[in-house]
Amino acid sequence: MGDIRKAAVLLTTLPEEEAADILQRLEPKQVEMVSIEIAKLKSVSAEEQEQIIVQFAESNPAATADGGGLDRAKNLVQKAFGKNATGTLDTIRQAIEEVPFAFLRNIDSQNILTYVIDEHPQTIALVLSHLPAAAGAAILAGLPPERQISVVQRIAQMGQTSPDIIKEVELGLERRMSSVMSQSFENAGGVGAVAEMLNVADRATERQLMEQLSLEDAELVEEIRRLMFVFEDLSKFNDKDLQIVMKNVETSQWATALKGCSNELRDKVFKNMSTRAADMLKEEIGYLGPVKLSAVEAKQQEIVDIVRRLEDSGELELNPGGEQEALVQ
């Protein structure tokens, strides 16, 4: 994660007056770069925000950001520079207009599906990689099963894409959907993009796709699954499932892992312990003092791996999205 994105996320967590005051202290070029990044932000996950806040200062890790967007960026720049904001605002506007496939963000997912369903899987993968995860998931769910597998594999393997290819694909959609946008070189796709889409896809689509994909690429399935469930998702577990996890996790693992989590998750873990055990864990957390973020993340990943093993053994059934599954009579 780049420093510019970190600064953008941090500024979106602050009241606008305070964020504008910080912008006033930056060089004009720095203001432009940070403001453009804020304008590109759609929403910020609680996990990402917590990591950034922990790095910058001791703060409430459970707080959530209002998110970015062009309006947010404009408000900050206008409050920071008043009448002198025009030049920076023009730069931000131009940069946002160059985001690949930005025009599709205002079009219903089902309409996009109609235009891309017969395209080559590589073309569909390129388009989905530039859309928000929810839109990508909706389009993915509408594809035939065999096409879903091909598209997911290509998204996962995608890295940097030539701007000429991006432009060619977008111009094709431009002609058919009567929308025009310029292009820029961009990183897109990857296993993380697949995990984000499946996290918001309906359970039936997720399970069917993962089962079929496992027959062709078991390692890719495992990598996707590790990204789909994150440590903070433990806060969504019911008490019974959390207690199953806690029986398999050492106190020392919890002490380090809880240093970088939300208050909600920390309180839930304490609640599912005896008073004495919770007090001992709190003391151990206090004794640790400041801990490197990398060490915290490593312990959190250890617990995530334990959860995955419990799922594989049938002791747990993961449902990170908290969706209620239908019952069959």
Rank of each mutant, 00 (worst) to 15 (best):
S129L: 06
I96P: 11
N263L: 12
R25E: 00
A63W: 07
L113W: 08
K240V: 12
T161Q: 09
D233P: 04
A257M: 13
E50L: 11
L242F: 02
I92V: 12
L89Q: 03
H130F: 02
T88N: 10
E232F: 04
N238H: 08
M246L: 10
A204E: 14
A133Y: 08
N238M: 08
S178H: 15
N238K: 12
L76F: 04
D241M: 02
G322A: 03
D305R: 07
L131A: 08
N84A: 07
K79I: 14
G67C: 01
E186W: 01
E27T: 11
I38E: 13
A195R: 00
I124M: 09
I303W: 13
G68Y: 06
D66T: 08
K83D: 07
R276Q: 15
I124E: 06
E186M: 00
V180E: 11
A135V: 10
E222Q: 08
I36N: 08
S129Y: 01
V221N: 06
I224R: 00
F229M: 11
E206Q: 09
A62R: 07
T64W: 01
I4D: 00
Q110E: 11
D279I: 07
R154P: 10
N263R: 14
A138M: 06
E206K: 15
E58V: 08
Q94D: 05
F103A: 03
V116M: 04
I139K: 10
N319I: 04
L234S: 01
M273N: 04
N263S: 09
F81G: 03
E302R: 10
E168F: 05
